[in-house]
Design a protein around this nucleic acid. Structure first.
Lengths: 106, 106
DNA sequence: TTGACATGTGACCAATAGGTCACCTATCTT
DNA sequence: AAGATAGGTGACCTATTGGTCACATGTCAA
C-alpha cells in the first residue's frame, strides 16, 4: 500500500478524524485520555491510533509508562498539495468561466 | 452517514481516485470508456462510480444509451476549507515557530 | 426489426476493517 | 514488595467492501 493510500484510508474513518481533531486542539495526549472521550474500549482506540501512526499522521513518544500522541500535519499537507489542489483549482477556473460567460451575455 | 463521511470514504479507494483523476483530465466520459482503462469488469467500475456519485464528487447526465460522467469539485473544496486547512495552517505556524526559534538562537 | 451496444440489478463470494476480550508486560506509588 | 496504573498482543466475531456474474432493459443502426 502506498503512503498516499494509507493517509486517505486513515482519514476515511470518523473516529480517526475525531482523534485528529482532539489532537489538533492539544496534542501530547495519552491513549487513556483519548479513550475517555470515546464510547469505545481502549483496544478500539489503540487500533485507530495505530492506523494514524502507520499513516504518519500521528507521531508518538514514550514517557515512562505513558505514550504521548502528537499530530504530524506533513502527510496531509502533501496530499493537499499534490492532489486536492488540482480539484479546487478546477473549481476556481470553472467559476471564472461562468463569470466570463455571464459578462459576455450581459 | 454524513456528507463529509461519504466524501472521505469515496476518496479512500485508489481506483476511485484514479477515476477522479481521469475525469479531471477530461470529463463527460462514459462507463465503457472509463472501464477500458482499468483491469476490472464493468460492474466493479459501475460500483465505484456509484460511490463517487453518492458522495457528490461525480455528477451524471444521460445522453441516449450513454451515461456521461462529470467531475464536481465542490465537495472536495468544502472538505478542504473546513477540515484540511486547519491542519496545513498548523504546519505553517509550526514552521513559523521554528523560524522564530532559530532566529532567537542566532 | 433484429442484432449489437450501453447500462442496470440483485445475488453472491472473499477479503478487509472495526471492535471486543483474555491475558500479558512495564512503570509508578506507597 | 505489592497494588494500581498505562499500555501491548493475538485470537476472535461481525459488518462492510470490492469484485464478479447471470440476467434484464433501453437505445442505436442497418
Amino acid at each position: 500500500m502506498s503512503d498516499d493510500d494509507r493517509v486517505f484510508k486513515a482519514l476515511a474513518d470518523p473516529t480517526r478524524r475525531f482523534l485528529l481533531d482532539r489532537l489538533l486542539v492539544r496534542d501530547g495526549r495519552t491513549l487513556t485520555e483519548l479513550e475517555s472521550e470515546l464510547e469505545m474500549t481502549r483496544f478500539g482506540v489503540m487500533k485507530h491510533l495505530r492506523v494514524l501512526e502507520d499513516a504518519g499522521l500521528v507521531v508518538t513518544r514514550r514517557s515512562g509508562r505513558e505514550k504521548l500522541h502528537f499530530l504530524n500535519p506533513v502527510p496531509i499537507r502533501l496530499i493537499h498539495d499534490r492532489w486536492i489542489d488540482k480539484f479546487t483549482e478546477r473549481q476556481l477556473s470553472a467559476l471564472a468561466d461562468l463569470k466570463a460567460e455571464l459578462e459576455g451575455k450581459a
